[in-house]
């Protein structure tokens, strides 16, 4: 592992904390005071403690939405418009590359571009090194718990877009476009991959049981019905019924809209 200087720019942690990397460049955090090491950034550990307190909230969709809103705020993804994330993905050659594997350097490059753009609009809110490290931390927690240092492009895009700023239908349409073929249709396999990646988000929050568990087959069957493949209108019609497996996402949007 490499302790000490890791990436250029100011560090996102202060003593007694230090950021280091494994041989496959996965960041981890050293606490010299407690002499411990952690995959989670110290501020992610604080956030996790806050999210545990939210377990007292009774209703599962509302509870999950509160957790997601806290996460969105902490990671400053509520300052990242969906288009900003989408443009960053395109600029880094990720369009149509769902199965390509991203390594840590790729992810950091894309996250940096995203948060530099967000910081231009919200300079007093977005701390770029911190946001990059927290977003990377969250994405690895959701899609690379074994810390191999690799995430598929589809998963990376889904994880960021879900928490980005945008209208609910905009997110739904974007998610569909990720799996649509040139005829704007998606098959059962691709729908399954998409729903699997979407459901990893509440799973990481300990909430997957509330939304039907991690088996996405019932959701795939419910969405497709008798069809062999899916068009965007069918996908939107299904989502507008707020199926149980995904109801946490429209509830997150209602929660955010209600804040004002």
């Amino acid at each position: 592992s490499t302790q000490g200087a890791v990436s250029p720019g100011p560090p996102s942690v202060q003593p007694p904390w230090e950021r280091a990397s494994t041989p496959n460049k996965v960041p981890y955090y050293i606490n010299h005071s407690t002499e411990t090491t952690h995959w989670d950034h110290p501020q992610m550990l604080d956030l996790a403690a806050h999210l545990l307190q939210l377990n007292e909230v009774r209703f599962s969709a509302y509870r999950t939405a509160l957790k997601l809103r806290s996460l969105q705020n902490k990671l400053c993804l509520d300052c990242v418009p969906l288009m900003t994330a989408s443009e960053a993905f395109d600029l880094h050659g990720l369009r149509g590359q769902n199965d390509r594997i991203l390594d840590i350097a790729d992810m950091v490059l894309i996250l940096r571009a995203i948060f530099e753009s967000a910081a231009a609009e919200h300079p007093n809110v977005v701390d770029i090194p911190l946001c990059v490290d927290l977003a990377l931390n969250w994405m690895l927690n959701v899609y690379d718990s074994q810390r191999t240092g690799q995430i598929r492009v589809l998963s990376f895009k889904v994880g960021l877009v879900i928490l980005s700023k945008g209208h609910l239908e905009e997110k739904y349409r974007y998610l569909f476009r990720l799996i649509a073929d040139p005829q704007q249709k998606a098959d059962q396999r691709k729908l399954g991959l998409l729903l699997h990646d979407v459901l990893q988000v509440p799973r990481q929050l300990g909430e997957v049981a509330a939304f039907g568990g991690s088996n996405i087959e019932p959701s795939v069957r419910s969405c497709l019905g008798d069809r062999e493949d899916l068009e965007v209108t069918h996908f939107l019609a299904w989502l507008n019924q707020e199926p149980q497996s995904l109801v946490w996402l429209p509830v997150l949007h209602r929660l955010a809209a209600a804040e004002s």
């Binding site: 592992s1 302790q3 230090e18 280091a20 494994t22 981890y28 955090y29 050293i30 010299h32 002499e35 411990t36 090491t37 952690h38 995959w39 377990n55 509870r63 927690n141 718990s145 074994q146 810390r147 799973r203 990481q204 929050l205 300990g206 909430e207 049981a209 509330a210």
Partner: peptide
């Protein structure tokens, strides 16, 4: 009651500076 998702692999052990 919600359960945390487990992380199976531990980070590198602590090494004093």
């Amino acid at each position: 009651r919600p359960k945390p998702a487990p992380t199976y692999r531990k980070p590198p052990p602590y090494v004093p500076p």
